[in-house]
């Protein structure tokens, strides 16, 4: 594992719910609140739409940190997408620990659409936390190679 260095700029993927965190990010922009450019936002229709596979692939493709930002408790547009997302994050925490990646590299955060300041604050905090952890142990600075995949219709090909 590399020692954290001042030069290290982590890659952070934030899966942001369209109804809250994504709008909050817009607000932050409108209010000219600055947050680190390390955070790459992926807009999703609901945090519940984020699958464990998306989270894992983010690490595989080179992310040093990942977070899912969903609506405040009880505010999910689709009832309970945010609580489902939180459970998936917990599941992925266990899985990445098995791989040997610190579980602190992924987390679930909650906010509302009006919380531009909270969005900026969270982005800053998480960036600093990951910066302190150093680069993800799996990539050693290099992006992951693409993997072979077959189509489900291999039978048809035959």
């Amino acid at each position: 594992m590399s020692e954290p260095t001042p030069q290290f700029e982590p890659v952070i993927v934030a899966f942001c719910c369209h109804y809250c965190a994504y709008t909050a990010a817009d607000q932050a922009g409108a209010q000219r609140l600055s947050y680190p450019a390390n955070v790459k936002i992926v807009r999703v229709p609901c945090s519940g739409k984020v699958d464990a596979l998306h989270l894992l692939r983010a690490f595989e493709k080179g992310a040093d940190g990942v977070y899912v930002a969903g609506c405040l408790e009880g505010d999910c547009h689709f009832n309970n997408g945010n609580t489902r997302a939180a459970r998936r994050v917990t599941q992925v925490q266990k899985l990445i620990e098995e791989i040997g990646i610190e579980k602190e590299r992924i987390e679930m955060v909650l906010m509302s659409a009006g919380m531009g300041d909270r969005f900026a604050e969270v982005a800053t905090e998480i960036t600093e936390k990951i910066r302190a952890l150093g680069p993800s142990p799996i990539r050693g600075g290099k992006p992951a190679p693409a993997r072979a995949q077959t189509k489900a219709s291999a039978k048809a090909a035959k």
Binding site: D51, I138, R147, A148, Q149, A154
Partner: peptide, 28 residues
Amino acid sequence: RKEVGLLASALNMTFLKGGKSVQITEHT
């Protein structure tokens, strides 16, 4: 299919961590 994807990804990362490149072909 989903668990195959997760395991492939987990294996891939584990091997990358060890500096090894393994070709994993997924099929369900």
